[in-house]
Design a protein around this nucleic acid. Structure first.
Length: 499
RNA sequence: GGGGAUAUCGUCUAGAGGUUAGGACGAAGGAUUUUCAGUCCUUAAACCGGGGUUCGAUUCCCCGUAUCCCUACCA
């Protein structure tokens, strides 16, 4: 039987990195085994605030970004649709009825108030919380009475009262659960929507799912899951509970950890291959060698469920950054330039849409900073000084000015440089360096003592790419303008040397 | 309170009875050099505790401890 796996997100907001990692594992198994990967939208929670219809777009954008486009889903369709659970309501109702008819489920008329009160009492008395199964043992008359009264009801699973249920988990092995420790789970809510348990079991069966790869937070309730499958008399898919991703405080990764939404990472400029590689490695390893940087085809080749670790992993932002930087440096510069432009537009550094001249300038300037980028969005700070109109002392870093624009030879240096640079027939990196070395020689100071003040005069900062690449990229006009401005304003107000 | 899972450097992990316990991120130091970054080299850094099993346990078993998850008409 070919492998069929699914990613089953619910639109409660933007998907979470852990959620996408699970999607990746599913996708990888399908690609590895030549099977099918499908996506199903689990939108059965209609609670206002928890149901975010737009979330579906975030889910799609995230999958597309990672390149894990499903073979069947709500967009492309497929033979076992619909792939949106809210459009499958009659199916769930039908299967719930079947369970009632076979005695594996029953209608419960208890009100939320009663349930809440019961829970509070249980908690107060230190008892395990759970439904007391009152409606499970209603007589025919009582049941008829409730129906006649038109009381709202839910359908609950009639969990076996004794015995055990065994969960065969691919990663954890067999887990034996006492049935009486499990609640009579609600399968169908009073609004007619199914809960996760019913919808998931029914859909997985109807959709021919062979492997259920999901977060470990489902392990505790897997006995209910298996019980429902057993109640239908179906064969259970292989269960794979993957460990959760934790925040730096070792708690389940959530919004309060800050950056956990996948789209945020895209916005901040993470490359798909970096995110993919990093997420895969967070809980999976090849097991054979010490390779960490892996292109997706290699990951597919080496992927196996057995390589997934059994313990939770803390999300390491630093390592992700490093890996992204690595992939940025590895990329064709043209690609990075293209991805950087929107950030420059957004920051107002270039017009919207950019002019050809601006693009040409960006193409010259961005490659110089590529090796310093960890997130693409950093491009704004990195190349800002190339685009901004620097007019000393406006836009100049104070520390940089204090450290390097107070040197005694500054005036002479600037004068010589302005002369030398102006005289350059070709504005080349080599030519600029030649002139500058000559200036240092004439001044009788070390090369570095010319380089640093020049950098500050031309860029307003102490750090950046090599000086001559910088001046070359800046161009003759900008360079001379900046140097002249520094020189002129120096006349007005000499800078006291410090440090 | 009940149930379940897990436990190797700070972090991600390799290891599957005998290893100098390996790699990566991060950290520290050095080299390159015009700064930063990058690149290269070096260093520090770990088997939760206690019992077993065994000639020998990081590795297998049990207990404890810790952590995480579940305990909703949420997924």
């Amino acid at each position: 039987m070919p492998v069929r796996v699914r990613y089953a997100p619910s639109p409660t907001g933007s998907p979470h990195v852990g959620n996408l990692r699970t999607a990746i594992y599913n996708w990888l198994l399908a690609r590895k085994e030549g099977g099918e990967f499908l996506a199903r939208l689990e939108d059965t929670d209609r609670t206002p605030g928890r149901y975010v219809p737009e979330g579906i777009w975030d889910i799609e954008d995230s999958m597309r970004f990672l390149g894990i486009v499903p073979d069947e889903w709500w967009v492309s369709g497929g033979s076992v649709g619909p792939y949106i659970q809210s459009e499958r309501l009659p199916i769930y109702k039908e299967y719930a009825e079947k369970l009632i008819a076979s005695g594996h489920a029953y209608r419960c008329y208890c009100t939320r108030e009663r349930l809440e009160q019961m829970r509070q009492e249980q908690q107060a008395r230190g008892l395990p919380t759970g439904y007391d199964r009152r409606c499970r043992f209603l007589s025919e008359q009582e049941r008829a009475h409730c129906e006649a009264e038109g009381m709202l009801s839910v359908v609950r699973l009639a969990m076996p009262l004794e015995g055990t249920t065994v969960i065969h988990d691919v990663l954890k092995g067999d887990i034996v659960v006492e049935n009486r420790s499990q609640d009579d789970q609600i399968l169908l809510k009073s609004d007619g929507y199914p809960t996760y348990f019913l919808a998931c079991v029914v859909d997985d069966h109807l959709m021919g799912i062979t492997h259920v790869i999901r977060g470990e937070d489902w392990l505790s309730s897997a006995a209910k899951f298996v019980s429902i499958i057993n109640a239908f008399g179906w064969e259970a898919p292989k269960l794979v509970h993957v460990p959760l991703i934790l925040g730096p405080d070792k708690k389940k990764l959530s919004k309060r950890h800050g950056h956990t939404q996948f789209l945020e990472f895209i916005e901040r400029g993470y490359l798909p291959e970096a995110l993919f590689n990093f997420l895969v490695l967070l809980g999976w390893s090849t097991g054979e060698e010490n390779i960490e940087i892996l292109p997706i085809p290699e990951i597919i080749k080496r992927f196996s469920l057995e390589g997934i670790s059994e313990h939770p992993a803390i999300f390491d932002y630093d390592k992700l950054k490093w890996m992204n930087g690595h992939y940025i440096r590895q990329s064709q510069p043209g690609r990075i330039i293209g991805m950087c432009l929107p950030y420059l537009v957004k920051a107002g550094l270039i017009s919207d849409p950019p002019t050809e001249e601006e693009i040409a300038y960006a193409r010259r300037v961005i490659p110089l900073e590529i090796e310093r980028m960890k997130e693409l969005s950093e491009v704004v700070d990195l190349v800002g000084f190339f685009f901004q109109n620097l007019d000393y002392p406006d836009g100049y870093d104070e520390k940089a000015v204090r450290k390097w624009l107070g040197v005694p030879h500054l005036r002479a240096m600037l004068e010589k440089e302005i002369d030398g640079y102006s005289a350059l027939t070709d504005w080349t990196i080599a030519g600029l360096e030649e002139v500058t070395r000559l200036v240092a020689e004439e001044l009788g100071v070390k090369f570095a003592e010319v380089v640093h003040p020049t950098r500050v005069a031309a860029t307003g900062r102490m750090v950046g790419p090599g000086l001559f690449e910088t001046l070359w990229a800046l161009g003759r006009e900008r360079t001379l303008h900046r140097l002249r401005t520094v020189l002129e304003r120096l006349e007005e107000k000499p800078i006291p040397q410090q440090d």
